[in-house]
């Protein structure tokens, strides 16, 4: 069997993910809010409200502190001379093989939070699909991008 890819993401990426998921978890507060709103109009029991709040809080905590950690632990990539391999996913483990000769372009990109932590995402595009390596240190990401670009350019089209 092929060896598993072994390159992890930058450690600070986990921190960024925790921040991002915390922020997006706030959206879940809309559920209890909606129920509360309905309660004002109709005569509904109050206990589901507490249940929903409990579920949202527990779910968000699990997501932020456990799932993100697992996600980060699972994320691995590896650049070979002729292909890129990615592995990620907590509940569904995905492994992707992208041959170098199919790579059309590589980019680095960063949002405000990634930028604050001096991180960047590398995107690899083929004619049909786009893949991301989220969260490498700026320096690493640029090196990786140039490396992939170099390999993609050199890839033997007859292969």
């Amino acid at each position: 069997m092929r060896p598993l890819p072994d390159q992890p993401l930058a450690e600070k990426t986990l921190k960024v993910w925790k921040i991002v998921t915390s922020l997006s978890s706030l959206v879940n507060l809309l559920f209890p809010l909606a129920y509360w709103g309905v309660m004002q109009i109709f005569n509904l029991p109050a206990w589901p409200l507490y249940l929903i709040i409990a579920l949202v809080v527990i779910g968000s905590l699990l997501n932020v502190f456990l799932i993100q950690k697992l996600q980060w632990n699972r994320w691995r990539y590896k650049i070979y001379a002729n292909e890129i391999e990615l592995m990620h996913g907590v509940f569904v483990v995905r492994r992707v093989i992208i041959p170098m000769i199919r790579v059309q372009h590589v980019d680095t990109k960063q949002g405000p939070i990634l930028r604050h932590y001096n991180l960047a995402t590398v995107t690899v595009s083929t004619a049909a699909t786009t893949h991301e390596i989220p969260g490498l240190t700026m320096e690493n990401a640029e090196k990786l991008r140039d490396h992939i670009a170099q390999l993609a350019r050199e890839a033997d089209p007859d292969e």
Binding site: G89, F91, V92, V93, R94, R95, V96, I97, I98, P99, R102, T126, A127, A128, T129, H131
Partner: peptide
């Protein structure tokens, strides 16, 4: 263009996989 294998928790019990392959078609992959 690429080949992907995925395995969900249930598939893990029997070590089964789902295979995905992408090709270019009109406008989209």
């Amino acid at each position: 263009q690429d080949m992907e294998s995925s395995q969900n928790i249930l598939q893990k019990f029997d070590d089964l996989y789902t295979i995905h392959v992408a090709v270019l078609t009109t406008m989209v992959g």
